[in-house]
């Protein structure tokens, strides 16, 4: 994953997370193996070709529509925050949160079955769900901290503390 930061002006900052993950991953190899298995089991018949090509098509469509390649947070002073997700197929979805609706920007920890993940989120007034920034790529804490301090320094006019090291034990 690569992380970039653009300061477009004094009052605007953009943080971009780009996924370095390989376009073809282990699931694709698994699919190929399944397809080969199918060919072996069914022989070179028409139905077999139909099934195999359908499977591959579905997989490609799924990747184009749902595989995330880039996530962005754009912070503008006194205006608000825009969170954007770009998918492999070029589709992108974004959400804008007005400055007056932003209650807080936080970093929190979440528990999954295997991991403890750190995430950055925006608490929006009047909503019971937070907006999670970099929701799909989930960068590491040191990256999150830069975006966190930068966003806070612009939205809440706080001092940028990102150069203060954290204590680990």
């Amino acid at each position: 994953m690569t992380f970039r930061c653009y300061a477009h002006a004094d009052n605007t900052r953009e943080y971009i997370m780009t996924s370095d993950a390989k376009r073809i991953n282990s699931y694709d190899f698994m699919l190929i193996f399944i397809c080969l298995g199918l060919v072996y089991a069914l022989g070179t018949t028409k139905t077999c070709y139909a099934v195999v090509s359908l499977l591959i098509l579905f997989r490609i469509a799924f990747k184009l529509l749902f595989m995330v390649t880039e996530e962005t947070i754009l912070v503008i002073r006194d205006v608000g925050v825009q969170v954007k997700t770009v998918y492999l197929g070029g589709r992108s979805s974004s959400r804008f949160i007005d400055r007056s609706k932003i209650t807080d920007i936080i970093i929190n920890e979440a528990i999954t079955m295997m991991h403890i993940r750190v995430y950055m989120a925006i608490i929006v007034e009047g909503e019971d769900r937070m907006v999670v920034v970099f929701q799909h790529l989930l960068p590491r804490l040191n990256v999150l901290l830069q975006a966190y301090h930068g966003a806070r320094s612009i939205i809440f006019n706080e001092k940028d503390n990102s150069d203060v090291p954290l204590e680990f034990s």
């Binding site: 920890e109 295997m114 991991h115 403890i116 750190v118 590491r140 804490l141 954290l166 204590e167 680990f168 034990s169």
Partner: peptide, 14 residues
């Protein structure tokens, strides 16, 4: 499957 180095340390509470 989940090597030690990949687990991020948690920051200490100041």
């Amino acid at each position: 499957i989940l090597p030690r180095d990949e687990i991020e340390p948690a920051p200490k509470f100041p």
